[in-house]
Structures are given as C-alpha cells and as structure tokens.
C-alpha cells in the first residue's frame, strides 16, 4: 500500500477518518447493547421458569422460588445498569431494535410475577417505573420502556399464564372447591354445579366472587383483541402474529377447563380428579 501516504493527505481521506471513529463508537455501543439484551433475555427466561413453580395465586412468592430467581434478577439489574448510559437521549430509540428483545422478555417476567403476586395486570406506568429504576440504579439514567415493548411483552405473558393455569388446574380447582364458591345446592343439575364451582363461568356477579385464571385470560384476551392497531407497520405485523398465538393459548386453557368440568361431573362426591393425563393432553395439543 505505497499509495496510502499521499492519499492520507487528501481531504476525502481526512473526512473518512472522522467517520471511522464515529462509526466505531456506534458499533461498539450497539454490540454492548446486543450482548446485554441477550443476557437479559436469558435471565428473564430463567426467572419465568422459576416462577412457574409457584402454586398459589395472589400470595407472596415462596422462599424456595425466590432463592432460585434472585441471582437472575441480579444479572438483569446489573445489565440494565451497565447499558443505561448507552441508551440515553438520542440513543434511546437508535438502539431500540437491539435492546427491545431483552426488554420484552423482561416485561413478560415482570408481568407474570406481578400477576402471581396480585392477580392483576401490571400497568404500563408500573412497568415503566420498574425499568426506570433499574436503569437509574448505577447512575446511567432511565431505560426507556416503549408501549410497543410493553404490549408485546403482555402477549407473551399470556403464554406463561396458560402454562401456569394448565399445570395448576388441579390445585386451583380444589382450592376453589374448598374456599371459593359457596357450597353447591344439591338440587342443581350436575353440569351447572360443576361449572359453578370449577370455572365460575355462570353469571354470578356477587362482589366477593373471585375471578378464576380462565376468566382472567378471557378478560385479557378481550382487551387485547379490542385494541385498534395499524396493520401495515412492523409493530402491527408483530402484533398480528402474537395475537394468534395468544388466542391459541386462551383456547387451550378453555379446553382444559371444559374437560375438567365434563369429567368432574362424573365424579363421586369427594373424589378429586387425577389431572396429570389431562394436563399432558392439553400441552401436547
């Protein structure tokens, strides 16, 4: 390359050398963010996996589950803390597509945990504050939660509720049997009695009535389907895809609940169905 020397003096070359350092900085930041995003995704998946061992809704997370997920939560905190400086101001949206997969998975885990604790859907504000705090923890500044990532995270969250509902159907069923609905009157026809006790799909709207997981999923499904979204944007296309998966998830749980009621109606008094076979069938569906 003996001709590099005279060329280095050319104004074009000087300009490109300026570009080089700018582009290098950009690529370095982008790579850091991609890596963090991957780590956050992996840790969030592990948290979700740990949370799937929870058996009781609307209750504090049991100690043993907490112990498994704490190290992963620490990973997430440190990753968000370390990249937050790279995604401030102008850069918040510049690197959105790099960080977005991680944020969506995180969103899914946060929504799931919130649901297990409270049986409520976490609000955008609630999630945004959590993410902001993670970004601020190391002084890097808040990490942006777009409403797109929030929403896409919610769609995936439905899948987790499905797994939770199916694996815990037996527990939830017996729980409800003991404490939930008032004792059934024997004169009711069997189908009606079963429906009332297991799934509460009747129109009983007494204020004290607890909502079942199936109903939660149905409510969330209705809200998600009701949203009026653009279909031609990348986000809209993503939503369309996830909408379908979400509907399948709700369907699966509805079918499982149906099976439980139908089979449950045949049972002798006091007999609890063995749901392991049923569960597998649903999962393999």
């Amino acid at each position: 390359m003996e001709d590099t020397d005279p060329k280095a003096a050319s104004p074009i070359m000087a300009m490109f050398e300026g570009f080089r350092s700018e582009l290098d900085e950009h690529h370095d930041r982008r790579e850091r963010i991609v890596k963090s995003s991957r780590d956050i995704t992996a840790a969030s998946k592990k948290i979700i996996f740990a949370l799937q061992r929870v058996r009781k809704l609307n209750a504090p997370i049991p100690q043993n589950v907490k112990k498994t997920y704490t190290p992963h939560a620490d990973v997430i905190a440190s990753q968000f803390g370390s990249i937050s400086k790279d995604v401030q101001g102008l850069h918040a949206y510049l690197y959105q597509s790099q960080i977005s997969p991680g944020i969506q998975e995180w969103m899914e885990s946060v929504a799931f945990e919130h649901y297990l604790l409270t049986q409520k859907l976490i609000s955008y504000e609630g999630a945004r504050e959590k993410l902001e705090a993670l970004g601020n923890a190391q002084g890097g500044g808040p990490v942006l939660l777009t409403h797109e990532d929030y929403l896409l995270g919610l769609f995936d969250f439905v899948g987790e509720v499905m797994r939770f509902a199916v694996t815990n159907m037996a527990t939830l069923y017996s729980f409800r049997k003991e404490t939930g609905a008032p004792t059934q009157k024997p004169e009711l026809p069997p189908q009606r009695r079963a429906a009332g006790s297991a799934m509460e799909v009747d129109t009983d709207t007494s204020a004290t009535r607890e909502q079942s997981v199936v109903e939660d999923m149905q409510e969330l499904r209705m809200r998600l389907e009701q949203l009026d979204m653009p279909h031609y944007t990348p986000f809209g296309k993503n939503v369309d895809k996830k909408m379908e998966v979400m509907q399948q998830c709700v369907d699966k749980v509805e079918k499982a609940a149906y099976g439980l009621v139908v089979r449950g109606s045949e049972r002798p008094k006091g007999w609890m169905p063995d749901l392991s076979a049923n569960t597998e069938a649903v999962e393999a569906y």
Partner: peptide, 25 residues
C-alpha cells in the same frame, strides 16, 4: 362482564389505545 374488579384495569388499555392513535396521527 366488564366489572373493574377483574384482572385488567381498563385504564391500561385506554392508555394504550390513546398512545397507538397518537402515533398513527
């Protein structure tokens, strides 16, 4: 069956819809 004591606070989705509409504009 739209009682507000359910899982979803309707405000959440009103907000999302408003945001989506605003961005379309």
């Amino acid at each position: 069956m739209a009682e507000h004591s359910g899982m979803v606070d309707p405000v959440i989705f009103e907000f999302l819809q408003a945001k989506v509409d605003q961005e379309s504009a």
